[in-house]
Amino acid sequence: MQEVKVIEIKKSIFNANEIDADNLRKELKEKKVFLLNLMSSPGAGKTTTLIKLINNLKKDLKIAVMEADIDSDVDAIKIFEGTGVKAIQLHTGGMCHLDAEMTKQGLDNLELDVDLVILENVGNLVCPAEFDTGACKNMMILSVPEGDDKPLKYPLMFQVCDIVAINKIDCMEMFDFDLDRVKGYIKQRNERAEIYPICAKDGRGIDELANKIRREIKEWRK
């Protein structure tokens, strides 16, 4: 029997990803590229919102999109057809989130002569919140049919997001959705979150949200 020696390590499991994420942010800062990580549940309207947002932002910014899904390329095609900007599809191969290493691989496939890269993360309110992708800012979309109690059920997602868009506000009445209540719940989890009520279908609130992203990009390039 060989002798087993114990080596003390005391190292965080999430640490490797945090280091990758910080390195990626450094690289993005040098290249003056702003990476926005967009998260939501499946069906909250990420792709529709993105198309509206990009069509607003592309007037003055060069944009690329990375679509992360477990499988298929429907979203990348939809984004390209809806906006004309370059979109690539990342497959997570069954995994429920993207980590910084996967994000970096995706970015290496894009020519980084752009101002803004939007990463559309896997539709899921749990796992993507736990892994830093290396993005400059995190944004999430909560849609009205999901209910105004979601910040209570998925606190981490709301804690890590700097921008929260509330989508499908045209059907608030139908779902007894209380905008003030949800704002209260979000602020309770994360005081610095900025909340933007939008309707991706008719374009309400998109200008305000797009301008917020413009301000963040300006800040990042300082």
Binding site: Q2, E3, V4, K5, V6, I7, E8, I9, K10, K11, S12, I13, F14, Q188
Partner: peptide, 20 residues
């Protein structure tokens, strides 16, 4: 509601047993 997590969020590799 003014509470925060003290411990329980992290996951660490404590040690490893190796041969050779």
């Amino acid at each position: 509601e003014k509470t925060y997590l003290l411990v329980g969020k992290d996951a660490t590799i404590k040690n490893i047993g190796v041969t050779g």
